[in-house]
Simulated scan of single mutants.
Amino acid sequence: MEIILKENVQGLGFKNEIVTVKDGYGRNFLIPTGKAVIASASAKKMLAENLKQQAHKLEKIKNEAVALAEKLNAVADIKIAMKVSVTGSIYGSVTNLQISEELAKRGLEVDRKSIVLKEVKQVGAYTAVVKLHKDVSAEVAFEVVAEEA
């Protein structure tokens, strides 16, 4: 089933993108919640016309995302203090929420849902990927350190 997304859906696609999904996922979740519409011929024509009219707005949004990505790539010295066991394992794990809070302290507002992070359960250096736009992403390096007692 082809659908047109009305908003960004994590793991599926971005707003105004035509994607193919299984029938049940589209009919039972995406369409009833207003996240998508069926991609009929008339809906595709309307989408093309809307995208043509919004091309300059989309270019502005993309330029803002590129500027933010440059700032994020320049960020250094992010240290996250966690309680650590004797073996070097941390209690719990580092999440995208903690990365988002650290970036907010530096004046960079990033939605925590756009931060992709692999499992962090040890002390050390890691990298998080921030997806700002469908064509723009940035990498943020951070270090997990032991919390001072």
Rank of each mutant, 00 (worst) to 15 (best):
M1Q: 10
E2R: 15
E2Y: 10
I3K: 09
K6G: 02
K6P: 05
K6D: 02
E7C: 04
V9R: 10
V9H: 05
Q10D: 13
L12H: 09
L12A: 04
G13A: 05
G13S: 06
K15N: 08
N16S: 11
N16Y: 05
E17P: 12
I18C: 05
K22R: 13
D23C: 06
D23V: 11
D23H: 14
G24M: 03
G24Q: 05
G24H: 03
G24V: 07
G24S: 09
Y25A: 05
N28H: 11
N28D: 01
T33R: 15
K35W: 02
A36M: 01
V37P: 01
A39I: 06
S40G: 13
S40I: 07
A41N: 14
K44I: 11
K44W: 00
K45I: 11
L47Q: 09
A48F: 04
L51C: 01
Q54A: 03
H56I: 00
H56C: 01
L58D: 07
E59R: 00
K62M: 01
N63T: 12
N63I: 00
A65H: 00
V66N: 00
V66M: 05
K71H: 00
N73F: 01
N73R: 08
V75Q: 11
A76F: 05
I78C: 04
A81W: 06
K83T: 13
V84Q: 06
S85Q: 13
S85A: 11
T87K: 14
T87L: 05
I90V: 08
Y91F: 15
G92H: 01
G92N: 04
G92I: 08
S93C: 07
S93R: 15
V94G: 02
T95A: 02
N96T: 11
Q98A: 04
I99V: 10
E102M: 11
K105N: 10
R106M: 05
L108K: 12
E109T: 13
E109S: 12
V110S: 00
D111A: 11
K113R: 15
K113L: 07
K113F: 04
I115L: 03
V116C: 05
L117E: 04
L117W: 03
K118D: 12
E119R: 15
V120A: 03
Q122I: 09
Q122F: 07
Q122V: 09
A125R: 15
Y126R: 10
T127S: 09
V129P: 10
K131Y: 04
L132F: 01
L132W: 02
H133M: 02
K134T: 11
V136R: 02
V136M: 03
A138L: 04
E139R: 14
V145N: 01
V145P: 03
V145M: 01
A146M: 09
E147F: 08
E147Q: 14
E147C: 05
E148F: 03
A149N: 15
